[in-house]
């Protein structure tokens, strides 16, 4: 089994290392220890600015910094970055298309014990509505690191989502010649009966689900979509044509996120059955992460069950 590491750890490490190569500032809102921007702060204290518990101001400050031509990361928990400061992101950063990387850590159910107020299940949906915003949700440590560098080299605003909970670093094992390309999905596994399209924390569970299905003689392809927007519609369309059934898997509400994006893309070009695994229009709650994942159906077993149901819907 691959090493486990939270994607937020990778974020902190990437900032600290890339800080040597690139000129950028990092902002946080009193969460540097948790979001891991503290790793950058320790190394580059003169380029790190704590904004205190004032996320709206932090986002507009970031816009002002970007307006002077400087790259900047603005970091908080996903709930307070994408949620609380949505309007600041839309109007200060999105509309003028400024080079700000907005980073939301501690997204969704795998926050665990802090419960519903801190488990942002809606950030991908919110960020996806903003014209020109790239929305990135890396699957593991390798991908998270690469995503940070890609965002630095991207012209335009990015939202990056990182998790609190450790996740197996599968990408290097599954894709030996892995290269992160913004807007391009990663094929983890080819299949013929159904395709599982997953993002973030759910990507490694999609691989587990494909193994379970293989044991039953079902050939499931697995695609990791690290960029929800712009969506790699070509890859998804080809998978739909090849396998005729899709299951999406995201640690996020099924409203407006990856599942919705895939449905929108396919309904306009090549409609096939799409079943969505995700938080089913509910709030989270406090608990141990494995128990919560079970409770909300964010499991390999649920993905496999939905895959079989999607196959049954094929005409």
């Amino acid at each position: 089994m691959a090493d486990k590491k939270a994607t937020r750890e990778s974020y902190g490490a990437a900032l600290a290392e890339l800080g040597e190569k690139y000129d950028f500032l990092v902002l946080d809102a009193d969460l540097a220890a948790a979001t891991k921007t503290g790793m950058f702060k320790k190394k580059f204290p003169e380029r790190f600015f704590d904004c205190g518990i004032a996320e709206g101001n932090m986002i507009s400050v970031a816009a002002g910094i970007a307006a002077t031509g400087k790259k900047v990361f603005a970091t908080s928990f996903a709930m307070f970055a994408a949620g609380r400061a949505y309007e600041q992101i839309r109007n200060s950063i999105g509309y003028p298309h400024l080079n700000v990387n907005i980073v939301g850590t501690h997204a969704s159910i795998t926050v665990g014990e802090d419960g519903a107020t801190h488990q942002c299940n809606e950030d991908l949906a919110l960020m996806r509505t903003i014209p020109g915003m790239s929305v990135i949700c890396p699957a593991d440590a390798t991908e998270a690191y690469a995503a940070v560098e890609a965002a630095l080299n991207h012209d335009g605003p990015c939202y990056l989502r990182f998790g609190r909970f450790a996740v197996p670093n599968l990408t290097p094992e599954l894709v030996p010649d892995y290269k992160f390309e913004l807007g391009k999905g990663v094929t983890y596994r080819e299949g013929t009966d159904v395709t599982i399209v997953a993002t973030g924390y759910m990507a490694h569970l999609a691989v587990e689900a494909a193994d379970m299905l293989a044991a039953e003689g079902i050939s499931a392809g697995v695609i990791n979509i690290h960029t929800i927007k712009p969506l790699d519609t070509e890859l998804i369309l080809n998978a739909a044509k090849k396998t005729g059934a899709i299951v999406t898997a995201e640690e996020h509400t099924i409203v407006g996120g990856l599942g919705a994006a895939v449905c929108e893309a396919l309904s306009e070009s090549y409609p096939v059955p799409v079943l969505r695994v995700g938080v089913e229009d509910k709030y989270g709650k406090s608990g141990k992460v494995p128990e919560l994942l079970e409770l909300y159906g964010l499991t390999a077993a649920n993905i496999a069950a939905k895959a079989k149901a999607a196959i049954a819907l094929k005409r």
Binding site: L25, E46, R47, F49, G56, N57, I59, S60, V61, A62, A63, G64, I65, A66, A67, T68, K70, E87, Q88, N91, S92, Y95, P96
Partner: peptide
Amino acid sequence: DMTTGSLGLGFSAACGMALSGKV
């Protein structure tokens, strides 16, 4: 120099510009 209209946001952006200049 800055897109504004939603009240409060421009003031923060001006702070960001001033901070960037200081850095």
